[in-house]
Amino acid sequence: MNKIDDTQLDQLLNNIMKAPVPPADLQQKLLMVPALAEAADLQATMASNDSVWRRTVPVAACLGLLLLMAHRFQPMPTAELEAEILAHVYAEERFFASSDHITLQDMNARMEKAIHAHLDASPATEALDVHLAKDCWLAQAVSMHLILTGDTGPVSVLMIPADVADHATTFADDRFSGTITPIEGGTLVVLGNRQEPVAKYLNLINDHMQWDY
């Protein structure tokens, strides 16, 4: 081997020091930190020198079980939920222009991973023109955000695996209008331009959505 120069050394350092790859589930754990922090606040007396995850998992698990027993989350105030949904959709607006097409198979793989649910294969679901399928933190739950091509523009479908609404409601601002609908296993939100017939997407998704439990 020859002696290495400064550029080669910098290149090697860059490759080696950036080599560690985070565990696959680390990002998801970090996204749950706000919820875990709330849970941890309830258990302030627990050991302070243990890891966040080990310290809060028992609390989170108990909370999760209680929430499941209570048929998932308590409903949120409607205004709070609507504000959070609109803020989320505006924050994700940059994805509206995406020209990606996500297949039903790919979308289902992402849904299974994020919320343990999928859409049945059918001509109607196969025909959905999906640009985005990503997990997101919404209504204190890891949820799924789909962006579809609608009749008048992009349509956001938000699948929240928690009962955060106790009744169906419609809402709107100057630009968007949408529906929040309690469904078996969670809550379905469909939001599009004010002229968009969102009900047809609501019905289509609701008819084909299957939870894994």
Binding site: P23, L26, P34, A37
Partner: peptide, 16 residues
């Protein structure tokens, strides 16, 4: 690495 993972979680908990 296991300690690094714990430390990363502690960091983001503190940051939040």
């Amino acid at each position: 690495k296991p300690l690094a993972e714990d430390l990363t979680q502690e960091t983001f908990m503190r940051a939040w």
